[in-house]
Design a protein around this nucleic acid. Structure first.
Lengths: 143, 143
DNA sequence: CTAATCTTGACTATTTTTGTCGGGTATATA
DNA sequence: TATATACCCGACAAAAATAGTCAAGATTAG
């Protein structure tokens, strides 16, 4: 049970933009170097982030990406939604006529996974990019 | 971000034993039929559950498995531990000298994933097999 | 004995993840 | 206007993880 690298990179990259952003667009190349993430993979990820309006792109020389919103307005759940991270995929299919296990309508554990899904989504809904930067600043000054 | 089938099946199978158990061992064959899970796969799973003392085995005709403890004593976290389900695997390696991203000591998102891990583990620690049976009984009587 | 059941390790097919490759297109700046 | 720096996009591919299968036993009730 883990997050995909895609999602993890997305959060890292956005946090990078948020902290290095001096009102200038941040290029994927810079992010790639700073965060040690493959440039071409980043392009894939940012294509989705852009489609979902998490970032805006500026083309051409000195171009790059900027956040569409204040970091405090960008919830982790929006980011994950953008890059197709799903909590609990099609394990217990709601639509299937056959039910979870192909027999009874709902398997014994059905409600448990529902509950877990809600629980985790709650976490992602409550956290935003701003929280992340704050937290990181705190721990830096601690050491 | 999802649970493996192995873990899901483990919980389903144990819940099955807990509900059909009339002080007699429950055979994997019966579980396989009732829950629609491959028998041979169940064997793999129960091998681990037995090693971790979640169930006891009784060999021979009319044999099967029984729970080692009262369902209320069996936490989901123990079950997942037994079948090697891990929340947040080795994404941000704690031991690595190179740090999470191969550069700085800890990546920007390090504390976030730590927090998420604790959060989810908390859920699994608080839930036990008994809760699951109770919940299932409730919803049955509702309909 | 024999049928039912657990025991174990090796093997394999499928799916998902994590990218790469190769071509674009847009734009700032010299 | 030429050029370098960026974003843009779809197809492809290697690697890892998942979800099993297969085969050959060992135990025990009846």
């Amino acid at each position: 049970m883990k997050l995909s690298s895609k999602s993890r990179y997305a959060v890292m990259a956005l946090a990078d933009i948020a902290s290095f952003n001096k009102n200038k667009p941040v290029s994927l190349r810079d992010i790639s170097l700073r965060q040690n993430i493959s440039l071409v993979f980043l392009e894939q990820i940012f294509s989705k982030l852009k489609k979902n309006n998490i970032v805006k792109s500026i083309r051409g020389t000195n171009g790059g990406y900027v956040l569409s919103n204040d970091p405090n307005q960008i919830k982790l759940s929006s980011i994950f939604l953008a890059v197709d991270e799903k909590v609990k995929q099609v394990q217990c299919k709601k639509e299937s006529k056959k039910g979870c296990n192909g027999k009874s309508s709902k398997c014994i554990t059905h409600y448990l996974w529902d509950e877990l899904e809600l629980y985790i989504n709650d976490f992602f809904n409550k956290k935003n990019l701003g929280d992340l930067l704050k937290k990181n600043l705190e721990t830096r000054t601690e050491t």
